[in-house]
Design a protein around this nucleic acid. Sequence first.
DNA 1: ATTTTAAATGAATTGAATTCATTTTGGTAT
DNA 2: ATACCAAAATGAATTCAATTCATTTAAAAT
Lengths: 229, 229
Amino acid sequence: MSSTARNTTRERLEAKDSAILDAAEGIFAQAGFDGAKIADIARAASVAEGTVYLYYKNKRDLLAGVIGRFWSQLTLGAEAAINKEAGTLDQLEQFGRYHLQSILNQFDLVSLTYRAQPQQAQDLDQVREYVKVFDRIMKQGVDRGELPPHTPIGHLRDVFFGTLEFSSRTLKLRGRPYDHSVVTNLLSLIVAPDQVTPARLEATTPSNQDLMQKLESIQRQLKQLPSAK
Amino acid sequence: MSSTARNTTRERLEAKDSAILDAAEGIFAQAGFDGAKIADIARAASVAEGTVYLYYKNKRDLLAGVIGRFWSQLTLGAEAAINKEAGTLDQLEQFGRYHLQSILNQFDLVSLTYRAQPQQAQDLDQVREYVKVFDRIMKQGVDRGELPPHTPIGHLRDVFFGTLEFSSRTLKLRGRPYDHSVVTNLLSLIVAPDQVTPARLEATTPSNQDLMQKLESIQRQLKQLPSAK
DNA sequence: ATTTTAAATGAATTGAATTCATTTTGGTAT
DNA sequence: ATACCAAAATGAATTCAATTCATTTAAAAT
């Protein structure tokens, strides 16, 4: 078996796998999990019913494959949509906008993500990867000194994704399209200092050490200025 | 047909309906939608399989019945958990705490609420009723002058429920129990500091806070300078 | 007590997921 | 080229559970 031959074989198999996922994605999104028939998926992928089971253990596993690929692609799209040079607030806005638009466009698929008890923990691996995009932006924001040192990233992550997911449901329910004010409003809660509130302050009350760090960070920035403006 | 007789008949039917819902709730929660077998539910409710279909058109409809009753009860529980005499922030905290605890305790049932494409719009009627509890608290807060006149209640509603739902998923995923800081943190985002009762403000406003805010504001201004960075 | 109507039953039907004995295909060695 | 083998694919047969329905049982009305 030559290496080239093996490659073409694998490519052929991957193409078929991909065809099955494409078909399944369409049918799942259109008919829901229960409504989707393996027979239909097989037909749409131009394979026999039995073939589907060579690639996926069962219907649930097939859905997991579709969902996993979907979130992987979403992660790639997000990386592309975010300007790494921009400031934290801008990056958050780009990500928030991208996220809300995406989950609205693919609402049916997203809804299938958390169908009752994801059997395998690793069913959500790709979702976790996606969520890390937010963590990275926030961490960078703290490192850059654009966010308070003790920003509760974990909590804010739940606020960010939770709010956008719930908002997408609300919009869908009312037959409304993408609404940028959802993102704006959310960001104002997450990053705007003017709206910082007592409990949040309590959670993030900076120590004198934090203040010193902040001053040093400002000092470093000042040094980069050619001249005082 | 005497009025007493009709009552006992109806009561008997309602008791049976209730028994079916009880059984279904337990089995759906334990086995998920697909895993739940009508045969098991019927056995648990001590009725024949066919009887289930006299009360509910099909399995999906039965689930809708379970979910509807669940959220109705949650609404009653919420009303009971909230002290109407208390201030807005306290009421929100009571509701937030109640909500998070409830959806954690009944996580499996809650997960079944938004299973792919709720067929009938009215499947979510009870959820809407529940959500109104939040609206009422907020509206009262605005009327009482405890919240700003233009508080975006609709947006904040999505933040409130979205965050708590997502947080509950996070906690479950990590095998963590109820965590009050989730509620505290959320409320700090939703309720602005100058609207909070003076006592609470005094208790939680440290002086370093102001310094930190000022420094951050200076830093943001620095970033705006053309030559910076 | 008899008739009528409603409720309940569970065996039979149906429909779709999954399996598996068989066939086809593609690669490798002779 | 041909024969051979293993991998891949097929789709008819099996299995499992939702749903239906002819029949029985219980309750209400007369």
